[in-house]
Simulated scan of single mutants.
Amino acid sequence: MAFDPTQPFLRADGLAGGLTEKAMRGPGYRRLFRNVLVASTTPPTALQRVRGALVLQCEEAWASHASAARVKGAPIPTIADEHVSVAHQKLRRHHKGVRCHVGDPAGVVVERGMRVSGDLPMFIELSGQLTLVDLVVVGDWLVRRRGITPEQLVKACKSSRHRDRRKALTAACFVRRGVDSPMETRLRMLLVLAGLPEPAVNLEIRDDLGEVIRKYDLSYPVVRVAVEFNGKLHAEVVENWEDDLERRADMDEDDWRLVVVISAGIYKHPLRTLQRVHRVLLARGMPGVPLRLRDDWRPHFPGFSDAA
């Protein structure tokens, strides 16, 4: 193939392609890793960095773990290093900023022109890098966006020989269908880890003709309680705000109680959120609600990791 400086390349390949050392040290080229460069005219992206990490490896290597998640667009927190895998220990090549693992090539697929871990292997690989809640976020995303089923995730974790398979299995058992966003996952996990009954996901309320008139993110239909995450979009867009007002009026007529949770209710004040939901469920007589909340949620939410 003709040398293309707009794609990550090794310094040696740049020399072979007619570039000089002086040119490659100049402003026309950006360094991704040691001896890996790309033309500065190309915008820096996560995919570009993954491609650069693969350039340093053998042709049979593939992007795995967090790097595979970045290629697929999965919702993961920031992880500094790139991660690649090879089929055998002897093929590993160590470079600063790139972690090289030994994996099973049987689960490798091609996406965006790159060899990457398949969805199920990637989920298991991420169990060694993500917290329980972040991993469930990825699992819910795989079900919603990639057509994976919760049953497939559980089965893959049970049959895996990966060292972190038990962590992956724990998370897979919390994965559900129909979750619309990562924040809904986090809110659901907060409630469940605190010992509250698991809420229904995206319950649809229909009229006498069978038409959907409302849908609740999380709900306890037995006692008509809905718990919903509202981002800034609901407050900043007039149409959304008006729709919310009409929706709440309809809920009042049907005797539904709505508990609205915003970002701060998960990232800053998760205990307040739990106490609010707990009080409402107790007042409504929800079966299975404990008198005292469990502390299992504390290690998994910001500001409470010291309780682990």
Score class of each variant (00 low, 15 high):
298 R>Y: 07
17 G>H: 01
264 A>W: 12
78 T>I: 11
72 K>C: 07
17 G>M: 05
253 E>V: 15
110 V>C: 08
28 G>V: 03
126 L>T: 02
74 A>P: 01
277 V>P: 01
174 F>M: 14
67 S>D: 05
300 H>P: 07
1 M>A: 13
62 W>V: 06
149 T>W: 12
111 E>K: 08
8 P>L: 07
216 Y>E: 07
125 E>G: 05
113 G>F: 04
99 R>D: 11
32 L>E: 06
306 D>P: 03
135 L>T: 06
29 Y>E: 05
148 I>D: 11
256 W>V: 12
129 Q>E: 13
79 I>V: 14
74 A>H: 07
182 P>I: 08
23 A>N: 05
7 Q>I: 04
255 D>W: 13
120 L>F: 01
95 H>A: 12
190 L>T: 04
62 W>M: 04
57 Q>A: 01
259 V>K: 11
26 G>E: 09
8 P>E: 04
33 F>S: 09
55 V>D: 01
296 D>G: 06
209 L>A: 05
151 E>D: 15
181 S>D: 14
165 R>E: 10
287 P>D: 00
283 A>H: 01
94 H>G: 08
239 E>L: 14
234 H>F: 15
263 S>A: 14
271 L>E: 12
224 R>K: 15
110 V>T: 13
193 L>G: 00
62 W>I: 05
254 D>W: 10
25 R>G: 15
133 V>E: 02
76 I>N: 05
281 L>N: 00
300 H>D: 06
272 R>Y: 08
162 H>C: 06
30 R>P: 03
69 A>F: 10
94 H>N: 08
53 A>L: 04
259 V>H: 12
285 G>R: 00
277 V>N: 00
182 P>N: 11
43 P>S: 10
199 P>T: 02
111 E>I: 10
100 C>G: 09
61 A>Y: 06
287 P>F: 00
116 V>Y: 01
136 V>P: 02
91 L>K: 10
107 G>R: 06
274 L>Q: 00
3 F>Q: 02
164 D>K: 14
197 P>L: 00
122 M>L: 12
165 R>G: 11
44 P>A: 11
80 A>K: 07
57 Q>I: 02
262 I>E: 14
150 P>G: 13
60 E>M: 05
128 G>M: 06
160 S>Q: 05
294 R>A: 07
273 T>H: 01
68 A>N: 06
195 G>K: 03
12 A>Y: 01
112 R>Y: 08
141 W>E: 12
85 S>V: 08
241 W>M: 14
151 E>F: 09
28 G>A: 12
235 A>P: 07
257 R>Q: 14
206 R>M: 02
144 R>N: 15
271 L>F: 09
144 R>M: 15
194 A>G: 01
265 G>N: 09
167 K>W: 12
96 K>D: 10
152 Q>Y: 12
154 V>K: 03
206 R>P: 01
14 G>E: 01
297 W>R: 00
102 V>A: 04
191 L>S: 01
288 G>D: 02
94 H>M: 09
284 R>N: 05
216 Y>I: 04
260 V>Q: 15
40 S>F: 07
79 I>R: 10
299 P>N: 07
39 A>Q: 09
251 M>C: 15
165 R>N: 13
20 T>H: 02
80 A>L: 13
174 F>C: 12
146 R>F: 13
87 A>C: 07
255 D>R: 14
281 L>W: 01
273 T>S: 03
3 F>D: 04
200 A>T: 15
